[in-house]
């Protein structure tokens, strides 16, 4: 019996959230686990997963799977679980993992828990804690089936690096034409940016920035911190920034170590997307902005003066 971890990548590089998922599984099992990666990767990239607790990596090297065809990925994972007699499938929460996890759970008759925030309690069955009400609460549930599928949120576990590398083996799933009914005709992805859900630091801008032409100060601060950029809903609604940067109740939910909000008042719907962040910094001209109540550090001041100074201070402190 073992645990399988689904690895996702970005152009051949394993995502940091997938490394966290391997570390999570290894910490849960107290022994090395099996990872499975689909699509184009170098052997070196995959064997490095040993460093996070993988004992073996299954590689399905099919270009057909590079873009993440939902059904084909689900079928592949189900077959890996069956062939390796795995009791649990772990994946980092992502747009693809969310879509895939539910399908796999039906295929392998598993209990499914999404948005898991901590290691399971195995003292009496299999109990997990998951985030609900858009980060405003948690629930504990017992997963009652003999198999489970977990999607885990960022920062659910501290990573321990082992210094090991591991074997990579080819895995050849039996995929049918039906598995490719979802025909991916184009993928449009910003290259080179830090992916928002992956980012350990996020710098986010709101209406207080007054227009898309003023985003340079946000981007400069993000660059100084190695952070991803994000925005509030009005900003994405007005198309100042693309929708995939919108953080909030109906946008991306982030749980970085540091979230810096610039010119965002902090409506409850925005807070719902960021309240799992470890540390929140708010910069706003209005001392009454509700965001200050949810923040750890605050500066009342004009973003156009404060943010460039902050960027300079970070650069000079390096």
């Amino acid at each position: 019996m073992s645990v399988i971890v689904f690895i996702e990548g970005d152009q051949g590089t394993v995502k940091s959230s997938s490394k966290e998922a391997v570390a999570y599984a290894a910490a849960m099992e107290q022994k090395p686990v099996i990872a499975i990666a689909l699509g184009t990767y170098s052997e070196e990239e995959l064997s490095a997963l040993g460093n996070y607790g993988a004992g073996q990596v299954l590689h399905v090297s099919s270009e057909q799977l590079d873009e993440g065809a939902i059904q084909a990925v689900a079928s592949t994972l189900a077959q890996a679980v069956e062939q390796h007699g795995a009791h649990t499938l772990v994946m980092a929460k992502s747009a693809l993992a969310d879509a895939v996890a539910a399908r796999v759970s039906v295929l392998i008759k598993a209990s499914l828990a999404s948005n898991v925030v901590a290691l399971p309690d195995l003292s009496d069955g299999f109990r997990v804690k998951r985030s609900i009400y858009t980060g405003k609460a948690f629930e504990e549930v017992n997963l009652t089936a003999e198999r489970r599928v977990l999607t885990i949120k960022k920062n659910a576990v501290a990573i321990t690096e082992t210094g090991n590398s591991c074997q990579v083996e080819a895995f050849d799933p039996d995929l049918q034409q039906d598995d490719f009914k979802v025909n991916i005709t184009a993928t449009d992805k910003a290259a080179g940016d830090v992916l928002l859900p992956e980012a350990d630091i996020v710098v986010s801008g709101g209406r207080g920035l007054k227009g898309p032409e003023n985003w340079q100060i946000v981007e400069d601060l993000a660059a100084a911190l190695g952070a991803a950029t994000a925005c509030s809903k009005p900003v994405s609604d007005m198309e100042w920034r693309p929708h995939h940067e919108h953080v909030g109740q109906t946008g991306v939910k982030v749980s970085p170590s540091l979230y810096i909000a610039v010119g965002i008042s902090g409506a409850i719907q925005h807070l719902a997307g960021v309240n799992s962040s470890k540390v929140i910094v708010v910069i706003n001209t209005d001392p009454e902005a509700p965001f200050f109540k949810a923040a750890d550090y605050g500066i009342v001041g004009d973003a156009f003066e404060v943010v460039p100074k902050l960027t300079a201070a970070i650069n000079s402190a390096k």
Partner: peptide, 22 residues
């Protein structure tokens, strides 16, 4: 069902904010 509910939990209250001079 695949799960059985145990309990809810609210996140711990945030510590007071520290304000920094601009």
């Amino acid at each position: 069902e695949g799960t059985s509910f145990v309990r809810f939990e609210l996140p711990p209250a945030k510590a007071a904010i520290k304000m920094v001079d601009p």
